Computed example of a mutant assay.
Amino acid sequence: MAIGRKGSRRIVVDGTAYRWRLRGRPTYSHGLCWSPCTYAVEHADTSGATLVVTTNQPHPSNWVGAPGVAVLPSDVSVAITSALAQGWNPTSPGSPFHLDQSDGFGSRP
């Protein structure tokens, strides 16, 4: 799975360039806050395994008015660093690497 260049943002973490993208329109599940917001990250220059990050926040454009928090570049940087420490290799081909940061999503009132 590759991230399209259109709509993606560039970020540099520890001297390595990546591209990341948050889906602009929420999926049905994200729109109704049944599942948390996700975004994807990949190496900017070399195709390889994509990082899929599941946050603990609703999608910012959800349909039910739940307060969604924007995904900041600092959040993406922390996720990339964490995924690299857990074994994500962004330059090797393979299945998407899933980083689950959704602890506490379902426990909100």
Rank of each mutant, 00 (worst) to 15 (best):
A70Y: 07
A70R: 14
V71K: 13
V71I: 15
V71E: 13
L72K: 15
L72H: 12
L72R: 14
P73F: 07
P73L: 03
S74Q: 06
D75R: 14
D75E: 13
D75L: 13
D75F: 07
V76F: 11
V76C: 09
V76W: 09
S77C: 01
S77H: 02
S77V: 01
S77E: 10
V78D: 10
V78F: 04
A79S: 07
A79C: 03
I80G: 04
I80H: 06
I80Q: 04
I80T: 03
I80Y: 05
I80W: 07
T81A: 10
S82A: 11
A83G: 03
L84N: 08
L84A: 11
A85C: 00
A85S: 06
A85Q: 07
A85N: 01
A85M: 00
A85K: 04
Q86A: 11
Q86M: 06
G87V: 02
G87C: 04
G87T: 02
W88M: 11
W88C: 12
N89F: 08
P90L: 13
P90Q: 08
P90S: 09
P90N: 07
T91A: 10
T91C: 10
T91W: 04
T91M: 09
T91L: 09
S92A: 15
S92Y: 03
P93W: 04
P93R: 05
P93L: 04
G94R: 00
G94A: 01
S95P: 04
S95Y: 04
S95V: 00
P96M: 09
P96D: 12
P96G: 09
P96F: 08
F97Y: 12
F97D: 09
F97H: 11
F97V: 08
F97L: 11
F97S: 06
H98S: 14
H98V: 15
H98N: 15
H98C: 06
H98P: 09
L99K: 08
L99A: 10
L99M: 10
L99W: 14
L99F: 13
L99N: 09
L99R: 07
D100E: 08
D100I: 09
D100P: 09
Q101E: 10
S102F: 09
S102P: 11
